[in-house]
């Protein structure tokens, strides 16, 4: 079992607390003039996303979390699971819904996603920052409007609903920013 001493604490280190994997967000070494030293850390639970504060006695050790992030290609979803492949080793992984979460509505297949695993099981999946998706449903455009000032909802091929300019029509390929969920441009 790999362990880390508090002396090795730094942001980005992955550790196990109360059975869950955590990421160290911030580590501060605190010590009264003479006396016991402590490490005050802010840690984010990688399963729930919740951030909490914990205090460690300096010198104590904590179990390392076997957490890795890899760029993997999204292959397909069978409805219950989302299947990804390591492009180098062709190794495949299946992520369930809690792990894929929001990323599910942006990916249709072939995209490279950041897949974070814990003990080999997907913890969460991040969609690419930008995706290209086809509009499957939107109200007819309004003549003369080219500014996109007002906008209207459009349903994409993955089911995601994005606010788009009024001139966008069904069947068009659009570039979307998955971080904000916003329309970026048409893809020519």
């Amino acid at each position: 079992m790999a362990t880390y001493s508090t002396n090795q604490f730094k942001s980005g280190l992955k550790i196990i607390l109360d059975g869950d994997p955590y990421n160290i967000v911030e580590n501060e070494f605190v010590k009264p003039g003479k006396g016991q030293a402590f490490n005050r850390v802010r840690v984010r639970n990688l399963k729930t996303g919740r951030t909490v504060e914990r205090t460690f006695k300096s010198g104590d050790t904590v179990e390392a979390a076997d957490v890795h992030e890899a760029e993997m290609q999204f292959l397909y979803s069978d409805g219950a699971q989302w299947h990804f492949m390591d492009p180098a080793s062709y190794e495949q992984l299946a992520a369930d819904e809690p792990a894929v979460a929001d990323a599910a509505k942006w990916i249709k297949g072939q995209e490279m996603c950041a897949v974070t695993t814990w003990n080999g099981q997907p913890l969460f999946v991040e969609a690419p920052n930008f995706v290209e998706l086809t509009v499957t449903e939107t109200d007819p455009g309004v003549r003369g409007d080219t500014s996109g000032g007002g906008g209207k909802p459009a349903t994409m091929e993955t089911g995601a609903v994005v606010r788009v300019p009024l001139f966008i029509e069904e069947g068009e390929l659009l570039k979307i920013d998955t971080r904000s969920g916003e329309y970026v441009s048409r893809v020519k």
């Binding site: 607390l17 016991q36 909490v52 504060e53 914990r54 205090t55 460690f56 006695k57 104590d60 904590v62």
Partner: peptide
Amino acid sequence: GIVLQGEL
């Protein structure tokens, strides 16, 4: 609000 991990 101090949550100590481990024992003193």
